[in-house]
């Protein structure tokens, strides 16, 4: 019984910890660092080309074969309006699950795994609609700004007419 009680205690503590803190995968696009929650990340792989999809927006790089499933790749730089990335073998695709779909995001490099407290998440300053639309919030890590990506917003509006 004592052991059980101890375990409960542990579970409580980790639950509290999980509630308050957030683990992020941080990646970079140019000089800027962004992050997504680590639980959404399925796989990180090197850029190895993609089959372009016709009639889609610029930021849809195409589709790749992920062990038999076709997964679309989004160019995050292009999504932010900075023009398409010219990918090399050193570029990285972060495969994530968004809802029940798997998508890949093309970034320059994956830099770190960060643990941040939920209390430290700041709101995105109003101003540019792209920022508020694509970012869920901002956290500070080692005095640098990390933008939290809103995955749903990133993958939406991929079609030409939308």
């Amino acid at each position: 019984m004592e052991a059980l009680g101890f375990r409960d205690d542990m579970a409580d503590k980790s639950a509290v910890a999980a509630q308050n803190s957030l683990q992020l995968i941080a990646f970079s696009i140019g000089e800027q660092t962004y992050g997504v929650e680590i639980t959404t990340v399925r796989e990180i792989r090197a850029w190895n080309g993609a089959t372009p999809l016709p009639n889609t927006r610029e930021f849809v790089r195409g589709v790749i074969n992920l062990r038999g499933t076709i997964v679309p790749i989004f160019d995050l730089r292009a999504r932010f309006g900075d023009g398409p990335t010219s990918p090399t073998k050193n570029h990285v695709v972060v495969v994530m699950s968004v809802g029940d779909k798997w998508v890949g995001i093309l970034v320059d490099a994956v830099s770190d795994i960060l643990t941040v407290s939920r209390d430290d998440i700041h709101n995105v300053p109003e101003g540019n609609s792209i920022d508020t639309e694509l970012l869920n919030g901002i956290v500070t890590h080692e005095s640098r700004m990390v933008g939290l990506i809103d995955l749903h917003a990133v993958v939406s509006g991929a079609k030409m007419d939308s």
């Binding site: 016709p54 009639n55 499933t69 076709i70 679309p72 779909k101 079609k159 030409m160």
Partner: peptide, 17 residues
């Protein structure tokens, strides 16, 4: 035949991958 819609959405002129 693989579905594009499974992870993406329907693309005009493309029946699948």
């Amino acid at each position: 035949i693989k579905s594009l819609e499974e992870n993406f959405e329907r693309v005009e002129g493309i029946a699948g991958g």
